[in-house]
Design a binder for these strands. Structure first.
Lengths: 196, 196
DNA sequence: CATTTTTCTTATCATAGGTCAATGCCGGTG
DNA sequence: CACCGGCATTGACCTATGATAAGAAAAATG
């Protein structure tokens, strides 16, 4: 299974099989069962996850008990909890597995350590993080400026396969609306399609 | 003025005056006048800005001509446009100066180049980026789960001095509400304070 | 310091989306 | 195969926030 991770790295940066062998002993692969909790709010996490197969998510629960999805992490996405990584501080979010998932587990100092052997790991890290920021800025912009319908259409375009894999109430929770509203949005869209 | 930037770096990582001297020749300081545009949507940016004094912002304009503030960058904050940095692609956002601002201008390869001389620059970069992500996740969570009033109170706590420096319509734009709504929220809060 | 421009407030009305409740629809599981 | 629990849909109603318009206040400008 680590083979998949190696391929991912090699697609991104120039890293040889030999180099990968040198750093990969710090890596473990872990399987999470469907609905398994990975991290609770209030716990301190020191791991970074790279999803090989399956689907993870991070989310919060507000004072009224409602769930809000911060991030989906399907295949080839990264998931981590920054309070723990940066400050050994408690997590504000929950992490769990939506589907049975195989993920690479990287200790939080993996990048630093492996970069001592393979310097380009720093480049990889920076480009990953910058990319995450780019995505989040786009999402913030949508939340600030777009209607529920626009956000849903954008979601479908961005994550066509997630749209099929996750229940609608989770998509609603990611979009910042209620499941009922999403249902209405979909109904409206269906109507429009007929007319066109 | 670069002295200020050196102090910032030295607070974050172990970098000597000599090391700083070696990398600082790549840096320029630029002054932006109040209301000066730094980058238009559609342009390609290859710079990163570190604010020494003043206030920058990134924002979008939607199809109805409304402005949405993605980020404020007051003193000691970073501002950049990721499409340009990562892919030489066109910017989706505008950058401009809210106040007359002095900022360090870093070419996009500054981190990589300076890390060749001062390796810990990579650490700095990663912690900056992770921190930015942490902030944005918090903001996304607020946009998903909190009312206008809650978001405003959170804003005041997070940026107490910005609250005084920027016009309310900009705060409203950052919070994702209209200036009129923010005005109402403030009125309600004032009432509650009297009662308490 | 008078004038113009921008920002803030207030009031009224409109609407997107939330809430609550009922119903139907599966896909498990005993 | 009957039952159950999670999901999705729908309808009726409600509320937070948006739209519009007007005036007041504050800030910029000559």
């Amino acid at each position: 299974m680590l083979e998949l991770f190696k391929q991912y790295l090699q697609k991104k940066v120039a890293i040889t099989d030999e180099q990968f062998a040198l750093i990969s002993d710090k890596l473990k692969i872990k399987t999470f069962e469907k609905n398994e909790m990975i991290l609770m709010k209030g716990e301190v996490s020191s791991h970074v996850y790279f999803v090989l197969d399956g689907l993870l998510r991070s989310y919060s629960i507000d004072s009224k008990g409602k769930t809000h999805i911060i991030q989906f992490a399907p295949e080839q996405w990264w998931l981590s909890e920054r309070n723990g990584i940066l400050f050994n501080a408690e997590s504000e979010f929950f992490l769990d597995a939506i589907e049975t998932t195989k993920a690479v587990v990287l200790p939080k100092d993996f990048i630093t350590e492996s970069a001592k052997i393979v310097p380009c790991m720093y480049e990889l890290n920076a480009s990953m993080l910058n990319n995450a920021i780019r995505f989040m800025q786009k999402r913030i912009n949508m939340l600030l400026s777009a209607t529920a319908e626009e956000r849903y259409l954008d979601f479908i375009k961005l994550y066509p396969n997630l749209t099929l894999r996750v229940p609608q109430w989770m998509i609603a929770s990611y979009l910042g609306i209620t499941p009922e509203s999403l249902s209405r949005v979909r109904k409206d869209l269906a109507h429009k399609h007929f007319k066109a």
